[in-house]
Simulated assay, not measured.
Amino acid sequence: MRAVVSKPHLLSRIASITLGKTIGGPGASIQDHPEPTISPDEILVRVRAVALNPTDYKHIDAVSPPGCVIGCDYAGEVAQVGGNAAKTWAVGDRVAGAVHGGLFPDRGAFAEYLKTDSDLAWKIPADIDDAAAATFGVSAVTAMLTLNVRLHLPWAEECKVGQEQQQSAPAIFIYAGSTSAGLFTIQLARLAGYTVVTTASPHSFDLVKSYGANAVFNYRDDNVADAIVKEYPDIRVAVDCFSEGKSFGICDAVLKNKGGRLITLLPPAKPKYPGVEHELVMAYTLFGRSFQWLAPFGPKFPALPDDRKALARFYASLPELVSNKTVRPPPITLEEGSWDGILTGLDKLRSGKVSGGKLVVKL
């Protein structure tokens, strides 16, 4: 089968991390690659569309060992069903989800076929196309992991859609609300009854409000944190959906009056103020397997069974949540070029040319 496969070796990856740029030429290419073999608990998926994430190019540039299939977010149709999975899946079913791309030779999404645990995928409703379905991958499940698992907010299927928000509703601060992760986090937090305060560029103000934000501030303003605290002085929880540069400092400044907890999507800086705690979340812990980056020297991450249960629960509820538009996909930009479009789109992400939506490639 065709697949986007990683090429770099350990020394070039370490150099890329150290110097902050790609060393040794392109880190991945489109190759012929062995088709995955499934276990009784897995399904084989013929991939029809993929969504692109920053984690994809970061794996290419620095994390992926040689010979790994890149890519996490996918939509397609079931091509083969393991014996234990036949109760819930049949050949031809439309399916979508996320896989742990970039670290294994047989699990990435940027391939003609991928394999996944049968309970860690969701059935696409008839009125949802593949491009939209592919966006409910890393960004969506990271929002769920952050809010429902780490912060213990009510789950989306437990919430009443359209219920009137109480004036006393607690506020949550979401940095970078116009990112895909931000838009999903806004929706799930608003469903849980929170007042959502976020940041974005002025041209995205209407976008984030249409997804449920109660208030939005320009992240470029020098006094943005002070402006937020003035209007919302009791914020105790925050989610940094950018997690680079000045975002940590702004989030800490929003939390400094009351102390509180900041969830980050990349390794956080040291908190700037006493009483503020930082915690990193990674969607990869949702797949229930231990893993290591930059083996044999890099950090190891244990299997977290409760995270895996959370992903199975979220994807079991997602068909209804999507059908009744309780949770909506982010705005979609189709990247032309099929397989070549994957690498072109990742270059756009790498250079910061994508905002306010999700790049999707149809294969």
Rank of each mutant, 00 (worst) to 15 (best):
V138C: 13
G102I: 07
K123A: 12
G137V: 01
D117C: 07
A126L: 09
V141Y: 14
Q163S: 13
Q165K: 11
G97H: 03
H152A: 15
E112G: 06
A98T: 15
C159I: 01
A96S: 07
A181D: 12
Q167K: 12
S168Y: 00
A181V: 15
D129K: 09
A96I: 00
S139P: 08
A111F: 07
P170A: 10
G102D: 08
E164I: 08
H152N: 15
A156M: 06
Q165N: 14
I172Y: 10
H100I: 12
D129V: 07
Y175A: 15
G137D: 08
S118A: 07
T142A: 14
T116N: 14
E164Y: 05
S139F: 09
A98M: 14
I172Q: 08
L114Q: 02
D127W: 08
Y175K: 12
V141D: 13
A109N: 11
P105W: 02
S168Q: 11
T146P: 06
F136G: 11
T179E: 03
A143H: 06
E158W: 08
G108T: 08
A156W: 07
A134L: 02
C159P: 02
A96R: 04
P154I: 07
S139E: 11
A143T: 05
I172P: 10
L153H: 12
D129E: 10
G162A: 08
A134D: 04
Q163E: 15
V149G: 11
G102W: 01
A156S: 05
Q166M: 12
A156Y: 06
A143V: 03
A111V: 05
A111C: 03
Q163M: 13
